[in-house]
C-alpha cells in the first residue's frame, strides 16, 4: 500500500516540473533576449539558464531510444526462450541457443580471429563476401544507371532493349552461375558476375522509370539553357531521377546479398556462403545459426546504408 504511493508521489512532481520547464523555456529565452537588447549587462542572463533544459532534453532522447530498443530485446528474449524449450529435448533435430553458445562461442565473441587459412572469424569471412558484393554491385550501379538513362531517354532504345531486360530479369541468380563459370573459368569473377547480373535489373528499370518521369518543365529549362548531353545527364537527369534510382539501388543491394551467399556455396573460397556449406557438410549446425545471424545483420546494415545515402542525396528532389 505504501510503496505505490511513494512511487506516484516521486514521479508526479518530476513530470510536472519537466512540463513546467518546457513551458517556461521559450518565453524565458525571449524575455532575456529582449533584456539583452535593452542593456549590455543582460547578456549574462541570456547565456546562464540552459543547463536544466539540456539535461531534460538528454533524458527525452534517452527515453525515445529506450522505446526503440527495449521492445525488440524483450521479443528476442522470448523467442530464444521458446526456442530453448522447443529444442531442449534429447530428440530435437536443431540445437537450442544454449548449445549454440557452447559450440560456437569463439565465432560469436571474436569475429576477427585467424587460426589458419580456413579457420578465420566470421567477420573476416563477411568482409571477403562484402568485397565481392561491392565490386559486383558497384559495377551494376554504374552500368544500370547508364543503361537505365538510355532506355528512359530514347524511345528506340526502350523498344529494343526493354523486352530483353524484362525476360532476363526473371532468370534466377544461380542460373547464371554455370555460364559465368564457363566464361570466366575462375570462382571469384564468376561470383562477382552473378552479383552484377542479379543487381542490375532493378537499377535499370527504376532509373528508366525515373528518367521517363522527368517533368517536361525541367526539360524545357534545359532546352532554353542549351545544356549539352553531359550537362543534362548530371544537372537534370540524375538529380531528378534520384529517388527512383535509389529505390533501384536499394532493391539491388538486397538482391546482391541474397545472391552472394548462394553463389559462394557453389564457388567455394573463404566467403560466408561457403562457410555455411562447409559447416553443413561437417554437421556444425550451431555454426550455421551464427552465420545466419551475421548475414541478417549485414544485410540489414547494407539496406540501411543505401537508404540513408539516398535520403541524404534526394533531400531537395522530393518536394517540388
Amino acid at each position: 500500500m505504501k510503496s505505490p504511493d511513494i512511487l506516484t508521489k516521486e514521479s508526479e512532481p518530476m513530470t510536472a516540473q519537466s512540463a513546467h520547464n518546457i513551458i517556461l523555456d521559450s518565453p524565458g529565452a525571449s524575455a532575456s533576449l529582449v533584456a539583452a537588447a535593452r542593456s549590455n549587462e543582460a547578456q549574462v542572463i541570456a547565456f546562464a539558464p540552459p543547463r536544466a533544459p539540456f539535461a531534460e532534453r538528454m533524458w527525452a532522447v534517452a527515453q525515445s531510444w529506450f522505446a526503440v530498443i527495449v521492445p525488440p530485446i524483450i521479443v528476442l528474449c522470448a523467442l530464444l526462450l521458446v526456442w530453448e524449450l522447443a529444442s531442449g529435448g534429447p530428440k530435437a533435430s536443431l540445437p537450442p541457443p544454449s548449445k549454440i553458445w557452447a559450440d560456437a562461442k569463439d565465432l560469436i565473441v571474436d569475429p576477427f580471429f585467424v587460426n589458419g587459412p580456413q579457420d578465420i572469424g566470421l567477420g573476416l569471412r563477411v568482409m571477403t563476401s562484402l568485397q565481392r558484393v561491392v565490386m559486383g554491385f558497384g559495377l551494376a550501379a554504374i552500368a544500370g544507371i547508364l543503361l537505365g538513362a538510355l532506355v528512359g531517354q530514347s524511345v528506340w532504345a526502350m523498344r529494343g532493349l526493354d523486352p530483353i531486360f524484362q525476360v532476363l530479369r526473371t532468370v534466377p541468380p544461380l542460373a547464371w552461375l554455370p555460364i559465368s563459370l564457363a566464361a570466366f573459368r575462375d570462382a571469384n569473377p564468376s561470383a562477382i558476375f552473378v552479383i552484377f547480373i542479379t543487381a542490375i535489373w532493378p537499377i535499370i528499370i527504376n532509373t528508366a522509370v525515373g528518367i521517363r518521369n522527368i517533368p517536361q518543365d525541367y526539360r524545357n529549362v534545359a532546352a532554353v539553357l542549351r545544356l549539352n548531353h553531359l550537362e543534362f545527364f548530371w544537372r537534370i537527369m540524375i538529380p531528378s531521377a534520384a529517388p527512383y534510382i535509389f529505390t533501384g539501388l536499394r532493391i539491388g543491394i538486397g538482391l546482391s546479398w541474397l545472391a552472394i551467399v548462394a553463389a559462394e556455396m557453389l564457388t567455394g573460397g573463404v566467403g560466408i556462403g561457403f562457410f555455411i556449406w562447409d559447416a553443413w557438410n561437417s554437421s556444425r549446425l550451431s555454426d550455421i545459426v551464427v552465420a545466419l545471424v551475421y548475414i541478417g545483420i549485414v544485410g540489414f546494415v547494407l539496406d540501411r546504408m543505401v537508404a540513408g545515402i539516398g535520403h541524404l542525396a534526394t533531400r531537395g528532389t522530393q518536394a517540388t
Binding site: V221, R235, P239, A242, G316, A319
Partner: peptide, 10 residues
C-alpha cells in the same frame, strides 16, 4: 514558366 520551374535540388 507558369509554374516557376525551378530545379528543386538546387
Amino acid at each position: 514558366f507558369q509554374n516557376h520551374s525551378l530545379l528543386p535540388w538546387l
